[in-house]
């Protein structure tokens, strides 16, 4: 079969849903940050070490990298195709009234998220993987301190909060849109997809948003 936009969309939804799944794992793991600081340090560092050494997690990590890259590349391809399909622009354009703003601005939201990811990866993932971090009492790399230090800066927390709000809207439309692309068409289940999408997004985003704030407030 010929490749077409619908297939790109399928990749978008596949990679997107995988990233959604990843966020759940990520959130669950990071919940350890809410423990009392000493226990949190121990648990968190142990957990990070556990992940780093696990072959399954390794595989998932590569899928994750591929998903982020794939999701971005296909988004770019589709955006280019879209602007070709648009042709001449409208002189006076009020089309926005017939849809919600975040559904029309997935690209913009995605770009914010992507920029955020660069910071996020550089500060934690890169540090953990490619630098020699001090070890904690149990002999695990002390990622917790890095996190703690980062979230003690207000501007850093704000960057996170803004990025997470962007991610929230991206998820809100993305989760539902992915289900549509995969072909969930029955009105009965479509309703559930919407509900699940809302619940999922709320839990994930509030969970992640709470972490930097919690750490920041603890440090005051």
């Amino acid at each position: 079969m010929k490749t077409n936009s619908l297939q790109y969309k399928l990749w978008m939804s596949g990679t997107g849903l995988f990233l959604c799944f990843f966020l759940v794992i990520h959130l669950l793991g990071n919940l350890q940050l809410f423990l009392p600081p000493d226990r949190a340090r121990e648990q968190f560092n142990w957990y990070s070490h556990l992940l780093a050494g696990n072959i399954i997690i390794e595989i998932i990590a590569y899928v994750l990298y591929a998903s982020i890259i794939g999701h971005t590349v296909y988004a770019i391809i589709l955006t280019v195709k879209k602007s070709k399909a648009n042709g001449t622009k409208y002189v006076y354009d009020k089309r926005g009234v017939s849809s919600v703003w975040y559904s029309r601005n997935m690209g913009l939201l995605g770009t914010i998220i992507f920029l955020f990811l660069i910071i996020h990866f550089k500060d934690f993932w890169y540090q953990y993987k490619f630098t020699n971090l001090p070890l904690d009492a149990k002999g695990n790399k002390d990622l917790y301190t890095i996190v703690e230090k980062a979230y003690q800066q207000l501007w850093y927390v704000l960057v996170y909060e803004v990025a997470l709000i962007a991610l929230g809207f991206h998820l809100l439309h993305g989760f539902f849109s992915a289900a549509r692309t995969l072909g969930v068409f029955h009105p009965k289940y479509v309703r559930w997809v919407k509900v699940v999408g809302w619940v999922y997004t709320t839990v994930i985003i509030l969970g992640f948003m709470a972490m930097p704030v919690y750490v920041y407030l603890n440090s005051l």
Partner: peptide, 17 residues
């Protein structure tokens, strides 16, 4: 779907407009 592509229409991003 292929013909839709060949005609140069864009993809659907489910804005529902």
């Amino acid at each position: 779907v292929d013909q839709m592509e060949a005609e140069g229409f864009g993809h659907c991003s489910n804005t529902e407009a």
